[in-house]
Design a protein around this nucleic acid. Sequence first.
DNA 1: AGTTGATATGATACCGGTAACATTGCTGGG
DNA 2: CCCAGCAATGTTACCGGTATCATATCAACT
Lengths: 354, 354
Amino acid sequence: MNSSGVMAAKRRRRPRGRTQIRDVARLAGVSAITVSRYINDPGKVAEDTRERIAAAIDKIGYIPNMVAKGLSSNRTNIVAAIIPTITNSIFAAEVSGLSDVLKENGHSLLISESGYSLEREAELIQTMIAQRPAGIVVTGQVHSERGAKLLRTVEAPVVETWEIGAEPIDMCVGFSNFDASYRMVTGLIEAGYRRIGLICAPITANDRAARRREGYLAAMGGAGLDIVPGWMRDAKFTFHEGARAMGELLDDHTELEAICCASDIFAIGGAMECQRRGVRIPEDIGICGFDDLELTRMFNPPLTTVHVPRYEIGEKSAAMLLARISSEKTVERKVDLGFEIVWRGSTHPPSSSR
Amino acid sequence: MNSSGVMAAKRRRRPRGRTQIRDVARLAGVSAITVSRYINDPGKVAEDTRERIAAAIDKIGYIPNMVAKGLSSNRTNIVAAIIPTITNSIFAAEVSGLSDVLKENGHSLLISESGYSLEREAELIQTMIAQRPAGIVVTGQVHSERGAKLLRTVEAPVVETWEIGAEPIDMCVGFSNFDASYRMVTGLIEAGYRRIGLICAPITANDRAARRREGYLAAMGGAGLDIVPGWMRDAKFTFHEGARAMGELLDDHTELEAICCASDIFAIGGAMECQRRGVRIPEDIGICGFDDLELTRMFNPPLTTVHVPRYEIGEKSAAMLLARISSEKTVERKVDLGFEIVWRGSTHPPSSSR
DNA sequence: AGTTGATATGATACCGGTAACATTGCTGGG
DNA sequence: CCCAGCAATGTTACCGGTATCATATCAACT
């Protein structure tokens, strides 16, 4: 309490919590730096020293402090990913791909959700940069001005995912949403459909949706077909919204022969709405989706859709970041993982197929 | 190039990358610690100083280094969550709840997937501890010995989620999977079903599935009904597996009147298999699920299921961790967020309802 | 024998913040 | 007028690792 006239003792190390590298060093009879070497590159340490250090680590249950390591070495093992929402399973699959590859390489994954808002995204980019990540993954190639500036100036490598139309800020991985949508709709036209509706996500702050919509418009226009504003509906990413949009189209536009859904979520929700109304698929109306969720294969009838490499986008993004983290040489800047139109029973097949 | 006989200059600070707090301090004409105070508690700094610092931060675009902050203050703003798989949407929803609450409170979320393996989980716990998180979220109350030991000895608060049957290591949030399953099956029995099958996930390394299975067994046994091993099937968490298991039960046990599915994934996959075979729901067979995925409401007929607070589990877990992080006093240790049996058209209703 | 180079290890400063304590200036009660 | 007490700010050491340079040992070569 009172120091009773004695000078306060010189401030000493106040050990906090976990054991540290110095404890291991003392126990093994070596210096801290030798333990550090053992952990980061055991080959630099003599065989018998290795054994003593291993025994010491095991004995006191030492777990390295990545925070201290990050500060002193000026590099963390954290990769930051910003996705619109984790509840959309295409992003969950992407995250799974990221996670699997990063884990194998000793990296950790920091996740945050922008909720399809570019302002939110910019804030999150800043928050992420504060953690000094080794790499950053963002969704799409459209960002707010502030977000883009941060991404351009950050030291860590950056991957933009799910769209490869524009020049990337650093690197990008995905496929052409325009091409995929264009080819899907062109296929529908080849299959004999003429009056084709569209259910698409709001295109603000979502360049993937915007490109898919453009693909639809280009295919329709290119084939000389009518583009009718009333045939196009916005929907948020829920089955219910897909059903609602489908219901509206069925109510207001009985002339429609097929509905192109820019997400399987809409296609499944919409198809269930059709079932509910006794509208037969594909006899009364054709339906196609986008993403190839597992459910589309299970549905009755199975849904025509676009298979997209969602898990692979995560895998490849992680791999590219790791390549750049380990060696500074630039690898690929733009990676097209492609897509595949999958014709199933929910539409008539295009003449060219089968 | 060559030092031409001159002594090497004393090693100096080598500025690395981003601007730092000292740059802001210099520009604002104050010391680093004052900037630190401004950032962490602006009230401690005089008004005019605040303005100068704010201007300086804005001018040079300073972004704090959370790695350095974490080391010097001995606390990070990272929360680590370990879930079985992010592709199961119940965990995606939980993560969303975690993320939303943590984000609001300036914390970041580190995610990793154990793939339903306790050994993997233990490894991940260790990896996470290395990051010195401010809090840890794990799934279930069953862990490997090593995992449990790490969780018991870690300094950070720990929340076990999705099951509250056992005493928590530190805190737990969820509901009783046993009770939920028991009440669901009891409801089926009240509805008149006697020969009830079960499709359940493998119960190894998954206490939630194990409790659900026990609930089924207890309800059947308690009602004096036959428990037939052939009526119970394992399935992994895919729609396809649900369909497969359902198909087997339909093939081998035509006597079954209802199938209790321990996950909506099985229920939906199974129900689609029934549709495919022309087996009518609920006329020919009753089906109930578990989790109340959005799709169960959209299905034709809508599926009877157990509503579980998946988003809320994330929210509440985050809130409890934050409470503990900000003040050391213990808050609730065991939080029951409940569940609700939702009777829909895929089963006959129990006599007691409606 | 002296030199060279490779191998193994250590001493020290430093990463970019903050905790703890010190200092300064000012206000107001005795 | 003196000093306690508060407000605002500064000084210094330290967090737990690693980068950098230094040192020690020993084999091989000239």
